[in-house]
């Protein structure tokens, strides 16, 4: 599983698609972000802290509500489940105790679904929350992986799969990592994990490792995007980047990881940022 494979559109098996983000597209919302990973694209808006319906009111903190809208088709159980997963990941990082008896609404609108949509949606939500100036205690970022089997029966891990790769996969994983923890220690920091399909232990572990290093790129991207927003006050990013490099070289990773290290800088260089 550690070998790198060329996939469609010339991507390597552990390479992310190019990332784009745009903040503050919507005027009415308190914060909004359009986030793209390859062709998958999501628009997220944050309203709040604002007035809350009496039934959702919580005495000691803000209630966080997530709405997940597909591009087309009727909303079903799967969307409810997506809302549930996104809310569960975001609620603990939002400092809800600062705004008792209010509501924070997060609306996710899928614009184009070309795979890894849940990860793209979560990353968009984090950017929108930061754009809205809602205080959060840490930055989380998400990456999905798929496992495909070729004719010889050997399994290959594909990071950030697109829709055609997801359809042919035998197993899928979705991970969310706490960016600060991963940047500091280079390990741990697992916030969410959702898997489907039968996975061997080693497949799961490689997915975890690959997603963790992918999520570091997304984390750095999110910080860089916010840094370009004129009103944002940020903690210095420099020392975190240094620690990140030390930490990742210190871990005795598999050969998969070694390959990945070289790849990561390449991936990040083709990340395209739009001026705000």
């Amino acid at each position: 599983m550690s070998t790198l494979v060329k996939r469609q559109k010339g991507r390597l098996s552990n390479q992310l698609r190019s990332i784009e983000a745009q903040l503050g597209l919507l005027n009415k919302a308190d914060g909004s972000a359009k986030y793209k990973q390859g062709d998958s694209s999501v628009l997220a808006a944050v309203y709040g802290p604002s007035e809350v319906l009496p039934k959702d009111e919580k005495g000691d903190r803000a209630s966080v509500q997530v709405v997940f809208k597909r591009r087309d088709g009727k909303p079903g159980r799967r969307e409810k489940q997506n809302e549930n997963i996104i809310r569960n990941a975001l609620e603990p990082i939002i400092m809800t105790h600062l705004y008792p008896r209010t509501a924070i609404m997060i609306i996710v609108q899928v614009l184009v679904d070309d795979g890894s949509i849940l990860s793209v949606a979560l990353n968009a939500c984090v950017l929108a929350l930061m754009d809205a100036g809602v205080p959060i205690s840490t930055v989380i970022s998400s990456i999905s992986c798929s496992i495909v089997v070729d004719e010889n029966g050997s399994q290959t891990l594909l990071t950030d799969p697109d829709l055609s790769e997801e359809r042919t996969s035998i197993g899928e994983t979705y991970f969310v990592f706490d960016g600060h923890v991963v940047a500091k220690t280079g390990e741990g920091g697992l916030v969410s994990s959702v898997t489907s399909g039968l996975l061997t232990d080693s497949a799961y572990t490689s997915c975890l490792t690959a997603s963790r290093s992918g999520s570091k790129s997304v984390y750095t991207f999110i910080r860089e995007t916010l840094k370009r927003k004129p009103t944002t006050v940020m903690a210095p990013i420099e020392n975190i980047i240094f620690e990140r490099d030390e930490a990742s070289s210190a871990t005795n990773g598999s050969d998969f990881k070694m390959e990945d290290e070289k790849e990561e800088s390449k991936t990040f260089s083709n990340v395209f940022m739009k001026p705000i």
């Binding site: 549930n84 997963i85 809310r87 569960n88 990941a89 975001l90 609620e91 603990p92 969310v176 990592f177 706490d178 923890v181 390990e187 741990g188 920091g189 697992l190 916030v191 969410s192 994990s193 959702v194 898997t195 489907s196 039968l198 996975l199 061997t200 232990d201 497949a203 799961y204 975890l208």
Partner: peptide, 28 residues
Amino acid sequence: SSTCFTIVYNNRGELCSLYKPGGKHIND
């Protein structure tokens, strides 16, 4: 609790699901 998660293994020792929707981060 700060986080809840569910692990599902089958009788052949394969991982069927590892479901952790969110909450506090955990280490490996």
